[in-house]
């Protein structure tokens, strides 16, 4: 029987990303800190890219800019033909709601909602609530017995599975993951990555993942290494 995932792949428009001369700095106690310095990067639709680099090299900042969580000091972030750095707060919120899925190292589930509500949350916000698709995700993620539990009642591995479920339930064109396995042991980390890769491939999403682990980075299509705010 053909998978439900395969049915919806054709409906998704995976994102093409183009970053041009992107730079970002922050004010710190020691003065201005240049975090990103003239980043240029292109990602094809359906690509899975690992963003690697030392601590402080600017990986998370780059991810946040692409997610529309923050604005660059200069440069363009063209996603699906639009420069999202030019959008106002409301426009970027709409972009995050409908086009991006985020997975964080700290999971950042909503503590007041149970697992089922957490998984459906983003999809409902995006206006793409699809119970059948969510059920399939729940099955694939192996969280079917946890649906009525609250985040604080889950282990770290279980929380990250739910976070991935929440992201993919909304069927985003772009999945951004910031150290998604950073808080997990190796076995759990591998399992979570397997799931994320197979599901994002299955949905045709573009995946940009920040990781410290070369072993995990090797499993993605491409690797981009950052050093002192520049791509090597």
């Amino acid at each position: 029987m053909k998978s439900y995932i395969c049915d919806i792949v054709v409906n998704l428009a995976a994102m093409v990303i183009a970053l041009r001369n992107l730079s970002k700095s922050y004010e710190t106690a020691e003065g201005r800190l240049e975090v990103l310095r003239g980043i240029n990067l292109d990602l094809g639709a359906g690509d899975s890219v690992a963003l690697t680099g030392e601590s402080g090299s600017g990986k998370s900042t780059l991810l946040h800019l692409v997610a529309g969580l923050d604005r660059p000091d200069a440069g363009e972030i063209v996603i699906g033909g639009r420069d999202i750095s030019k959008l106002d707060d409301r426009g970027r919120a709409a972009y995050r709601r409908t086009e991006v899925g985020l997975v964080f190292q700290q999971f950042n589930l909503i503590p007041s909602l149970d697992v089922a509500a957490n998984i459906a949350f983003h999809a409902k916000l995006a206006g793409r609530h699809d119970p059948a698709w969510e059920n399939e995700l729940v099955e694939r993620l192996g969280v079917g017995t946890l649906l009525t539990r609250y985040p604080e009642q889950l282990s770290s591995g279980q929380q990250q599975r739910v976070a991935i479920g929440r992201t993919l339930a909304a069927r985003p064109g772009l999945v951004l993951a910031d150290e998604p396995t950073g808080n997990l042991d190796e076995a759990n980390g591998d399992a979570v990555l397997d799931l994320m890769l197979s599901l994002s491939k299955g949905t045709g999403s573009t995946l940009l993942m920040v990781t410290h682990s070369q072993r995990l980075a090797d499993r993605l299509d491409r690797q981009v290494h950052l050093r002192s705010g520049k791509i090597e």
């Binding site: 919120a93 972009y95 985020l102 964080f104 909503i110 503590p111």
Partner: peptide
Amino acid sequence: LPQLAPVWAMGVTRRD
């Protein structure tokens, strides 16, 4: 913040 930030990240504005 830890409760609001994920909701903001998923596309709800600070004003809302």
